[in-house]
Design a protein around this nucleic acid. Structure first.
Length: 601
DNA sequence: GCCGTTTTCGGCCCGACTGTTTTCAGTCG
């Protein structure tokens, strides 16, 4: 059962509780648990198997025992009986944006919609006959809105409604550039999941600092790639682009910009926790600033300005906002309510790894044709060295795929590997201008039986190897784990490439016992890769954090198949930062000699 | 139903927008 399915089930239970006016905090609790599970990149069913369900924030003894029943038997008796209290067709409508439990229930009841399968079509038909507009609480406008909302939803479903971080970043850069062209815009920065650098992004949110919101919003609505307007108010607007992406813009005066940036960066759970904390200190938080619950408070020297009329402390920058609450500024990447607030209060925030710390890229495919098992790159070594030089790297690792084993004899592979080595050595020595050092590596398939797809005598021609899974992804957990451990056991296998094998928005990762992998890597000095390739971003951030906690070290690489891909490094760094990685956790922050010592040992 | 640097009981985040309303309910982020 996928996380999405589990989350949906919990949301349905929450919806019924809401309708039946149960304790409203119980409803909130179910919604919160659903949110956490939805956002978790670890499979919740796996967490259950490991007995760690309650480690998820919002999942306590009660929900975890229901989930246990769910995973064991495929159903939860209590949930079933709760769901039966309302017409089943209602749940089909909850997926549509703009539909909450109350409207969904009212519509299914009053329009006599009974089949979950045809519920959405039935609703569309009723709208076409003008039946919705006649219901209490509805009108012509809401009937029209419902039809449009359903159409957008159906279109979005076909398309896949989240995109990868790198894709979203490109769109956001364009929008940001456009917004900046307006002369009243002081600052325009992406917020929300984009600012937190989450691996997949839904909507793209922007904050704009300006003293002329009216004009700036007008400019935004004239964005050339706008397809339709969703809404517009005095403080913001939302549009859909021609590529189907929704972009939300919020405008605010520079003097309260810091609070807004903080507020809309989120995450939701981070902000909720922050507001609870503030309440205990006697303050209420909102996107305009910090409001004392009593009028007598007076606090100065936090980069704030006290607005007497509104009884509100205003902040130009986020730093002051956090400092006011007795905290250090928290990097957006870790604002997920996973302990960062406590760490900040205790002055124990990690010093997260930075782009400038990276000294080399170890996973680069070249155009040299060694009859590889998978795709070739499109750039040659000279281009790569030149680009690495521009990036001020000290070293690069060339990691082509291994030669195809099915089509070559061991002797042929040996000669291919020999030729490759001398070819690269010749190119490298003829590139006198470069300071960049070279590692001759290879990305080797771990075959289903755990063997590496390179004959033993060929290993003499490489410095070290990245080993990866590229076939037969559906093995059961223990066999897959053994397969990986067996591949990693070779003395020259130093790095596990794209460890989970996930392809964002396309394919889940394979089933692996991470504890076992982490323990092995820690003991034998192997590294896990954070692969920065847009569809991978693999190891995922939460596993990065688990790995680090277990003392495992990591390498951030781009898996470049073209010299321009080397620019993707920053996304790998983002993943590492989201996993609380510090410089010392990432091996390719080491200078050349130290790194070489680890790689060739 | 969850949770804990005041708590194992007694609390539990905040505002904007929309449509249908004459003062609010529902939904969203």
């Amino acid at each position: 059962m996928t996380n999405k399915e589990v989350a949906k089930l919990l949301r349905e239970v929450a919806a019924v509780y809401l309708l039946k006016e149960e304790n409203r905090f119980r409803t909130i609790a179910y919604e919160r648990a659903a949110d956490t599970i939805d956002a978790s990149t670890v499979d919740v069913e796996d967490l259950w198997k490991e007995g760690k369900l309650t480690s998820l924030p919002g999942v306590g003894s009660s929900i975890s025992s229901y989930l246990e029943e769910l995973f064991k038997t495929g159903e939860v008796k209590h949930f079933d009986s709760v769901r039966k209290k309302v017409p089943e067709a209602m749940f089909a409508l909850l997926d549509i944006p703009g539909f909450g439990p109350k409207r969904a229930l009212q519509l299914t009841k009053e329009l006599h919609i009974t089949s979950p399968k045809s519920a959405i079509d039935d609703l569309l038909r009723a709208a076409g006959q003008g039946k919705i507009a006649r219901l209490a609480g509805f009108g012509e406008k809401s009937q029209k809105d419902i039809v449009e909302s359903i159409q957008r939803f159906q279109k979005g479903q076909l398309k896949e409604n989240r995109i990868t971080l790198p894709v979203a970043s490109v769109i956001a850069d364009e929008v940001g550039e456009y917004l900046q062209r307006h002369r009243d815009v002081f600052e325009a920065i992406p917020l929300g999941s984009l600012r937190r650098q989450v691996a997949t992004i839904g909507d793209i949110d922007f904050a704009v600092s300006t003293k002329n919101p009216e004009s700036v919003l007008g400019w935004f609505l004239k964005y050339p790639k706008k397809q339709e307007l969703i809404e517009r108010g005095p403080t913001g607007a939302s549009i859909v682009l021609t590529n189907g992406r929704q972009v939300d813009v919020r405008v605010q005066d520079p003097k309260t910009f810091g609070s807004m940036v903080q507020y809309f960066t989120g995450s939701k759970q981070h902000n909720i926790h922050l507001r609870e904390l503030a309440l205990k200190q006697g303050y209420s938080l909102n996107e305009y600033g910090i409001k004392p619950l009593t009028k007598s408070k007076s606090k100065k020297g936090y980069g704030n300005n006290y607005n007497k009329k509104k009884n509100l402390y205003e902040f130009q920058k986020e730093e002051g906002f956090y400092r006011f609450l007795g905290m250090h500024w928290i990097p957006p990447e870790i604002r997920e309510d996973r302990g960062e607030i406590e760490a900040s209060l205790a002055n124990r925030l990690p010093e997260l790894v930075k782009m400038q710390d990276i000294k080399g890229d170890l996973h680069i495919h070249t155009s040299y044709d060694l009859k590889p098992s998978h795709d070739l790159g499109s750039s040659d070594l000279k281009e790569i060295l030149k680009y690495a030089d521009v990036r001020k790297y000290e070293y690069v690792g060339i990691s082509d795929h291994n030669p195809r084993v099915s089509e070559h004899s061991e002797i042929e592979i040996l000669s291919i590997m020999k030729r490759r080595k001398s070819y690269y050595e010749q190119i490298y020595s003829s590139t006198k201008s470069t300071r960049v050092k070279l590692f001759l590596m290879l990305e080797i398939d771990i075959l289903p039986d755990g063997k590496l797809a390179l004959p033993q005598n060929s290993f003499a021609y490489i410095d070290a190897a990245i080993v990866s899974i590229h076939s037969v992804f559906n093995m059961d957990k223990s066999r897959m784990t053994q397969r990986i451990l067996s591949g990693l056991s070779h003395p020259k296998a130093k790095i596990l490439g794209h460890p989970t094998g996930r392809l964002l928005t396309k394919r889940e990762g394979y089933d692996v016992d991470w504890d076992e992998i982490f323990t092995f890597c820690g003991k034998h000095n192997k590294a896990l890769e954070i692969n920065a390739y847009p569809q991978r971003l693999d190891l995922p951030d939460d596993l990065v954090r688990d790995a680090i906690r277990k003392g495992v070290r990591l390498v951030i690489s781009t898996d470049s198949h073209d010299v321009t891909h080397m620019d993707l490094m920053r996304y790998g760094v983002s993943v590492a930062r989201r996993g609380w990685a510090q410089k010392g956790d990432i091996l390719n922050t080491l200078p050349y000699n130290k790194f070489k010592e680890w790689l060739i040992s």
